[in-house]
Design a protein around this nucleic acid. Structure first.
Length: 509
RNA sequence: GGCCCGUUCGUCUAUCGGUUAGGACAAAUGGUUUUCAUCCAUUAAAGAGGGGUUCGACUCCCCUACGGGCUACCA
């Protein structure tokens, strides 16, 4: 094969939300293309009209945009020189090649009805034989191989429903090289005469896939392992169409498995597993069921890219944090693992934490601002940034910003009971009163001065720091944990700090 | 059932015939933070089983077991 520009494609079907395994497949394609200075194409495989789900195509596009793995050609990303990129729009292109296969003796017409096919399968199953439409069984079925030539012609002219099936040799080894798994050999005796062209005039996946990859000059097919069994069929199609010299290289990715170790991750898992399986929130148009998305769950796209990249691939070094660019640089199909990977929530959380810490406070402030809007709270930008700086390393997900910072915006009305029960005593009101008085006289309300006033109040009442510090925190914020107390108070400001103490005094008894 | 692919700590994985089998997440313990989170240190944790090949196998071959995928006029 001559040196061709690397061109890869991600080719999902718009049958629902794109799940996270699909995003990983897209990512690996993207990384591979970037690594080799090639093109990454988005093609929509919608040959099954019955399974079309409205909104799914838009969802796929939005998802890819969110994670930042944008194709440079294809639906939703500027149609390139190989348009159209939606198989339903390419419908007229396929028939020609199907006819070519028939003329060359590699495919044939079949007129069997669904009932007849079922009957054949039942019959074969009953006699414990593999129930497939193959070199043997096709001789007992109704097709252009068993029908007289003029009868076939008559049926076609009459407009009878038909499909076109590939005519596989009875016994022949099909061998192909997978970039991840090495050589794979399958005998055609275990395969069946797959339908290439459906009675509704649409090609099946197998046919459309080969014609499109060929005509879009795809050099590498990087897809999920579920396609491995049909790869020999695809190899045969390239051969029969005379395209073997430009056949793409294949790489079948290991699957993403459910954490409980039972089966592959699927769209239907929705939220059942306790973590999102979709990049974006998805509302099923049929059931109305809403499934959460990584975005809405507070994941950063950079973290999703990084954690997905490591589910089935690793650089062979100890580095675990990679930017998209670094990934593209380091990525090789050679280092993709062969076995399925269970999704690990903890690791995902850890990745997100790492990325949140890297995010600039001003960016987090914007997110916090959005969350505050839900409560009709407005705050100054500078204040928001300072709050974010204090709480950022405590959170794992963006959406937790509010949970960890709400008391910066709303003065507490309830106080952590455990702490109060343990620490509140007859001296507490005295200390607080002294503290209020001392704080009133602090002119420069920064954390050192607050701390000095605090220590003075303790001394006056002969109270030990450890017996009161957390009490102080609870009076100010209502909760037992949080950022350094005096810095927190400094951010509240003098007025609010004093009000909070007064409120606590009135409410706690 | 048939065919294909796979199998290293609980999880993601490193190792490409010779290692005390390494790292990360999670866990446990201790320390720091007089809180939580962070951070630091420490601990525990793995080659599915059986045959070969070899001076020597986690690594190569075979068998078994187990896991996964496919087996539609779905992709």
């Amino acid at each position: 094969m001559t040196e061709r520009k690397v061109r890869v494609r991600f080719a999902p079907s718009p049958t629902g939300a794109l799940h996270i395994g699909g995003v990983r497949t897209a990512l690996y394609n993207y990384l591979f293309a970037k690594k080799h200075g090639g093109d990454f194409i988005l093609r929509i495989e919608d040959t099954d009209q019955g399974r079309f789900v409205p909104g799914a195509e838009e969802y796929i596009i939005e998802s890819l945009k969110w994670v930042g793995i944008e194709p440079n050609e294809g639906i939703g990303f500027g149609e390139g020189p190989f348009a159209p990129y939606r198989q339903s729009d390419r419908k007229p292109m396929y028939k020609k090649y199907v006819d070519q296969l028939i003329n060359d003796g590699y495919a044939y017409y079949a007129f069997d009805t669904a009932e007849e096919l079922d009957a054949m399968r039942d019959r074969l199953k009953a006699s414990n034989v593999d129930s497939k439409y193959d070199a043997i069984t096709r001789t007992t079925m109704i097709n252009s191989l068993t029908l007289p030539e003029d009868e076939t012609k008559r049926r076609l002219e009459n407009g009878d429903a038909y499909v076109v099936r590939i005519k596989l040799p009875r016994k022949e080894e099909v061998k192909f090289h997978d970039e991840i798994r090495g050589w794979v050999t399958v005998n055609t005796s275990t395969m069946d005469d797959k339908v290439l062209f459906k009675s509704d005039g649409m090609p099946t996946y197998h046919m459309a896939n080969i014609v499109d990859d060929y005509s879009m000059q795809i050099t590498h097919v990087i897809r999920g392992e579920e396609w491995l069994p049909s790869a020999p069929l695809h190899v045969l199609l390239y051969r029969y169409l005379g395209w073997e010299n430009v056949m793409p290289k294949f790489a079948h990715l290991p699957l993403l498995l459910k954490p409980d170790g039972n089966g592959k991750l699927s769209k239907r898992d929705g939220d059942k597993l306790g973590f999102p399986v979709f990049p974006l929130e998805w509302k099923d148009p049929n059931s109305g069921e809403i499934s959460s998305g990584y975005k809405q769950s507070g994941y950063l796209p950079e973290a999703v890219v990084n954690l997905l990249a490591f589910l089935g691939w690793n650089p062979g070094t100890h580095q675990e944090l990679f930017t998209k660019e670094e990934l593209a640089e380091a990525f090789t199909l050679e280092r993709v693992s062969k076995h399925g990977a269970k999704f690990d929530q903890n690791k995902a959380k850890w990745y997100n934490q790492q990325y949140i810490r890297k995010v600039d406070n001003s960016v987090l402030a914007l997110e916090l601002e959005k969350q505050l809007a839900n409560y009709n709270i407005k705050a100054e930008k500078q204040y928001l940034e300072q709050v974010c700086a204090l709480v950022k390393e405590k959170i794992s997900f963006i959406k937790e910003l509010w949970d960890y910072s709400n008391y910066f915006f709303v003065e507490p009305t309830v106080y952590d009971e455990t702490v109060i029960k343990k620490r509140w005593n007859e001296k507490s009101p005295l200390v607080i009163n002294d503290l209020i008085e001392l704080l009133r006289n602090v002119s420069n309300f920064d954390h050192t001065n607050i701390e000095a006033a605090y220590n003075q109040a303790l001394e006056r009442n002969e109270v030990a720091n450890k017996d009161f510090l957390q009490m102080f925190r609870v009076c100010l914020s209502g909760v037992a944990g949080g950022p350094p107390i005096f810095e927190m108070a400094a951010l509240f400001g003098k007025e609010s700090t004093i009000t909070r103490l007064e409120n606590a005094l009135n409410r706690i008894k």
